[in-house]
Write a protein that binds this DNA or RNA. Structure first.
Length: 262
DNA sequence: ATGTCCCAACTTTTGGGA
């Protein structure tokens, strides 16, 4: 099973690029963020034609998350079940091909110490609470734009990020708490080297200068992570024409042993 | 280089967000 996460920065603007990419890369499950669509505007038909079911959770202008799957899509849960989300539509989960998936879009935080930054930490707390209601032994994948660079080797120049969001101890602690629960940063396991990024600012030629951050992640419980054979970032998808400012992160998951089958 | 892209709206230009 090939899985991926991609902050598409408007699914309306990116739709042809996304469906073409899904088919070209033969992706089974794609977790999307920043669709910037309301649910009734979600392009379900275009995904159907491409062979995918679509679960969407969005309010319109901002945020919005979705899951596209060609290996089944069941038990869709929008938001953290039963918990109000004051930060907009940033979480949706569903079961695809025997694995529970969640598409996650953490708040940006804007400025360290601002109300928005505190709200970002609050969102991570609610995500942690959601995890607490689940079993770390289950087959679970959280993918998305977490707006956190987990380590200094995940930013192009640590000195340029002093005092900035995405790299503070508090944000990294919130991210590490997910790992402490039992999730594995799948890309990191397969790429211990630094300088691999998933986001580059549109401005100032940042992409071509290599000035990026690794803030998009595939986090999997050990039962899934142990079956990941390869993980990559598709930098080509960040190139013209009309790119998102994020590149997709992909992983291949080999089938579970028959002894694990129900 | 306060540099781009995307959205909505009191829409053809501006403001908000990333």
């Amino acid at each position: 099973m090939r899985i991926a996460t991609w902050n598409v920065n408007s699914l309306k603007a990116r739709l042809p690029k996304v469906t073409e990419w899904l088919e070209r890369r033969e992706v089974d499950v794609l977790l999307m963020q920043e669709t910037k669509l309301a649910d009734d505007a979600a392009p379900e038909l275009a995904f159907r034609i491409a062979g995918y079911e679509l679960a969407h959770h969005g309010e319109g202008r901002w945020n919005g998350v979705a899951i596209a799957s060609r290996v089944g899509l069941a038990d869709v849960e929008r938001g953290f079940a039963g918990v109000p989300d004051p930060d907009g539509a940033r979480f949706v989960s569903a079961t695809c091909g025997g694995v529970r998936f969640a598409s996650c879009y953490a708040p940006n935080g804007r400025e360290v110490g601002s109300e928005f930054w505190l709200a970002k930490l609050g969102w991570f707390g609610r995500l942690r609470d959601w995890l607490a209601g689940r079993d770390p032994a289950e087959a679970l994948v959280l993918g998305g734009d977490f707006n956190v660079a987990p380590a200094d080797l995940d930013v192009w120049d640590p000195a340029a990020f002093v005092g900035a969001t995405h790299v503070t101890d508090e944000e990294r602690a919130a991210f590490d708490a997910l790992l402490a629960w039992g999730l594995v940063d799948v890309y990191r396991v397969h790429h211990p080297e630094g300088g691999r990024f998933s986001w580059w600012d549109y401005r100032a030629g940042a992409f071509h200068k290599g000035q990026g951050m690794r803030i998009d992640h595939l986090l999997a419980t050990r039962t899934v992570a142990s079956r990941v054979t390869v993980a990559e970032i598709d930098r080509d998808a960040r190139k013209n024409p009309i790119p998102s400012d994020h590149a997709p992160v992909l992983a291949d998951v080999s089938p579970a042993p028959l002894s694990d089958a129900p």
